[in-house]
């Protein structure tokens, strides 16, 4: 986690505030060297001070947002490799095509028949914008999914109206 941006702005803001304080504390006896530089008005000073504070607050918010974004990104990217999926013909294609949008947890949690997996491919294309999966690759991918992620069905609960 690096904070160079916020540090820079913070330093800038502190310098600005420091200068303001110097101006304000200037004893009346000490005449400015360069008479042509008029001391800023109180209103201008207040505005400058408010601007500096706002800049600091903004920088703090930006840094906090960035740090939070990094933390959330780390949680959302578990750094999976292909071997998180069971060994089998088609694993490489499935890993390559199915992890652009989501991690594999969503696949590994699922247990569907070949027919349902096949339907899901169309759903992913129609509703979620996945590139259409066709021909041999589709067969390869769906076969792999159906083989390794079948319904975890208790035969005792099998429905008599389905076969």
């Amino acid at each position: 986690m690096s904070l160079p941006a916020v540090e820079k702005v913070a330093l800038g803001a502190i310098c600005a505030l420091g200068l303001l304080v110097l101006f304000l504390d200037l004893p009346a006896s000490r005449v400015p060297h360069r008479a042509e530089v008029l001391p800023p008005t109180r209103a201008a000073l207040a505005t400058a001070e408010a601007d500096a504070r706002a800049a600091l607050a903004r920088a703090e918010r930006e840094a906090a947002a960035k740090a939070e974004g990094e933390r959330l990104a780390a949680v959302q990217n578990p750094g999976e490799t292909e071997d998180i999926l069971p060994v089998g013909h088609g694993r490489e294609e499935v890993f390559a095509r199915c992890t652009a949008c989501h991690s594999t947890a969503i696949i590994r949690r699922s247990g569907f028949s070949r027919e349902r997996w096949d339907e899901l491919m169309d759903w992913m294309t129609e509703k979620q914008g996945m590139a259409p999966l066709e021909g041999e690759v589709r067969t390869l991918v769906v076969d792999y999914l159906a083989e390794h992620f079948p319904p975890r069905r208790n035969p005792r609960n099998a429905n008599p109206f389905l076969n």
Partner: peptide, 18 residues
């Protein structure tokens, strides 16, 4: 288990989407 600052040890169901 979810391990994340600001969150309790919840049951992690998926990382992306979280």
């Amino acid at each position: 288990t979810l391990r994340m600052e600001g969150k309790a040890a919840l049951i992690l169901l998926g990382e992306r989407p979280l």
